[in-house]
Design a protein around this nucleic acid. Structure first.
Lengths: 214, 214
DNA sequence: ACGCTAACGGACGCCCCCGTCCACTTTGGC
DNA sequence: GCCAAAGTGGACGGGGGCGTCCGTTAGCGT
């Protein structure tokens, strides 16, 4: 033994790890987070024990599996913030976020649910929300975003977007696109809009079981 | 025996039946359709066998439990159609439908999902949609509803509304109310709106498992 | 008051998922 | 090539929901 702590995985192990992540990404996207761990293992061609040794909890697996989406999410808000026209940036964030979430059923659940252990998602969500808040502020000042818009409206929109289920992914993405366009229409400042009902206090939002991911 | 076919339940039986329906209504509203049958039985203070004898399938139970909501749904669209101003009627339908669905988590699932056996919900949904289509047509003619609105947009809105989950029912209703107001804003005809992305072909819509209610 | 029978609910067997243990296999440094 | 350690997957016990059977209880007509 040359090393007491081999932090480097054996070749077959890291190979399996990658296959597991691929399977998880695919199944989380199509089936959502509720997909059984064994299903992922089966799809990856490994035994349950291997899956559990590599990722002791489903949170850890989800966290790893969704790094791409998390990066994309951050990229979207950064791109939106970089846009010279704040309203254009705001619209862009809504459009692309809706599409991103429409593409992966599981990511939305992970992103919206408040994980008790892994704080990654919460932190990332907070970052996104704060960025968008700043963007919204600028868009309001520019007179394009309705003045009574609040950040919770965006959370509301995201929650609503997740309700859109269809048979195929293509249909879901298309529906989400149209939904985003309608939402943007609703957020746009207009002389004719009547006052909105009061905002509801939206808790950090849980899909069904608060914090539990099963 | 005075009657060969006692179509009338014994007193304790009809009593239990009522308690089961009460429990089902309460649990379906708060927990959704996924609540276990035993849970309903337990909550009603009866054994599983009693529940299953009275309602052999969860569909039958749900169908009975949601008659009130179905009636309310029909009343809403009728009221909206009776309104002299079609746009006002259209808004009213959206507002009240959103609220109705926000009040009962399970009803939305039942209403949106396509039951393979019990056709009651499908028929009722079709009636509502046809009525609203006619209302929308008049609202368009009056120039208040945007011309590129299609009926699928309303289904989209309903699907989205079901995505709104919160901790308390009160918060959910409040959120739904605001959501409805925003949606109405989006549907309102306006000189400044840009063309919408193409409509997606929305299948009759299934919550997760198409047609299965478990 | 009685007895027939509808109605009841506890208990059963089934299946699926969970997380863990352990005997066997593979890797890679020497 | 050898062999210790890392890695593997089948198998296990636990838990929970499902739908049904059956011995017991109690409503109701006589």
């Amino acid at each position: 033994m040359t090393d007491r702590l081999p932090h480097t995985l054996r070749s077959d192990a890291s190979d399996n790890r990658e296959r597991i992540l691929d399977a998880a990404r695919a199944l989380f996207a199509t089936e959502g987070l509720k997909v059984p761990m064994r299903e992922i293992a089966r799809h990856a061609g490994v035994g349950p024990a291997t899956l559990y040794r590599r990722f002791p909890t489903k949170q850890m697996l989800a966290t790893e599996a969704f790094t791409d989406e998390m990066r994309a999410c951050r990229a979207i808000v950064d791109k939106g913030r970089a846009e010279p026209d704040p309203w254009r940036g705001f619209c862009l964030v809504i459009e692309e976020t809706c599409e991103l979430h429409a593409r992966s059923r599981g990511f939305t659940e992970a992103f919206m649910s408040t994980f008790p252990d892994a704080m990654d998602f919460v932190a990332e969500r907070e970052y996104a929300l704060r960025s968008i808040a700043e963007l919204a502020h600028r868009a309001k000042d520019a007179g394009h975003l309705r003045p009574d818009f609040v950040l919770d409206d965006l959370v509301l929109m995201l929650m609503a977007n997740r309700g859109i289920h269809t048979t195929s992914k293509a249909a879901r993405v298309a529906a989400s696109r149209r939904f985003a366009a309608l939402v943007i229409q609703a957020f746009q400042a207009s002389p004719q809009h009547s006052p909105l009902p009061p905002v509801a206090r939206l808790a950090p939002a849980a899909p069904a079981a608060p914090g539990k991911i099963t």
